[in-house]
Design a protein around this nucleic acid. Structure first.
Length: 294
DNA sequence: CTTACACCCTGCTCGC
DNA sequence: TGCGAGCAGGGTGTAA
């Protein structure tokens, strides 16, 4: 489910119910998700107030009054459901009995203010951790992590520098969280299509100081930002059963131009090409071989 | 230092 | 209808 726009959508849904509020109670259903929960997880959360709920790449970070930060990653299928007061907003397919629990509900936060926040994760690739706020950027989750694609650091200049002399294909370089952190399979495919760059182009091809490659790096930086901003504004993408914290659905998937459109017509004006699927680094890449040149 | 691949886990879809 | 194969938005660890 979640790349950066989906995580940002989740953050916005959770923030009003968490920021400035204390955890009245936390409970966990099992000792681990992808990784074991930290020692005394629920005890360390109890009574802690959430000072701010932020996002870094695909991670959610709740800064706590205790000096710790609750770091959360949604993996592939993680999601949060909020029930506030007597109202359970769980429309759509994601049925949830207020006060009860559904399969794969692994963690429940009961917040000051009345919200009950349930973390559900079918595949359990997500996880939660508690880390000292001091030196957070150097903790194991964030050490070595690349730049924030919606931050000021992303520019043609930066892309040229990061990709300098890289032989890896653009697709792999853009997915590499140590370079740019937050892009995933969907948005990389979409960005490369819009930039008319072939996914198998060696990343280093964008890394010269002047001329056309430099121009392409500039374009790519702007396009990455555009795609992510549009997706956040659309409330993320709804594939399979991803829903917002309130059960509503994102709709950016209707704006996909290549992702999951194998065999379909290229949407570019007068192109007439057909979208192809290839496998790179073990994941599907969708692209138009006519628009996107090596 | 790369890059490639298996793996973590569950569920859904597709072809036979 | 049943059944196995392949696939899925994530990251990590290991090997080459």
């Amino acid at each position: 489910m979640p790349e950066l726009p989906e995580v940002e959508t989740v953050r916005r849904g959770l923030a009003p119910h968490m920021e400035g509020r204390r955890f009245l109670r936390a409970s966990q259903r099992r000792p681990d998700l992808r990784f074991p929960f930290p020692e005394r997880f629920v005890e360390r959360l109890a009574n802690a107030r959430v000072e701010a709920l932020s996002r870094r790449a695909k991670y959610l970070i709740a800064e706590l009054s205790t000096g710790e930060a609750l770091v959360m990653h949604l993996g592939m299928t993680g999601r949060f459901l909020i029930e506030a007061g007597n109202v359970a907003f769980a429309p759509g397919e994601f049925h949830h009995d207020p006060g009860g629990s559904a399969p794969h509900d692994h963690v429940v936060f009961e917040m000051e203010g009345g919200a009950r926040i349930t973390y559900n994760d079918v595949r359990r690739f997500g996880y939660m951790d508690l880390v000292a706020q001091e030196g957070l950027a150097a903790c194991r989750h964030f050490a070595g992590m690349g730049i924030e694609p919606l931050g000021n650091e992303l520019s043609g200049e930066t892309i040229a520098r990061l990709f300098h002399r890289k032989l890896a294909p653009l697709k792999a370089a853009l997915l590499d969280q140590r370079l740019i952190a937050g892009l995933g399979n969907i948005y990389v495919c979409e960005a490369l299509f819009r930039a008319r760059l072939h996914p198998q182009t060696p990343a280093g091809a964008l890394a010269t100081a002047t001329g056309r490659p430099r121009q392409k790096a500039l374009e790519l930086a702007a396009i990455i930002r555009d795609v992510l901003v549009e997706a956040v504004e659309a409330g993320g993408s709804t594939l399979r059963d991803f829903a917002h914290t309130d059960g509503s659905l994102g709709y950016f998937q209707h704006s996909f131009r290549v992702y999951d459109r194998e065999g379909g017509p290229c949407v570019a004006e007068a192109c007439g090409g057909t979208i192809e699927r290839i496998v790179q680094s073990g994941r599907s890449t969708f692209f138009c071989p006519r628009c996107q040149k090596l």
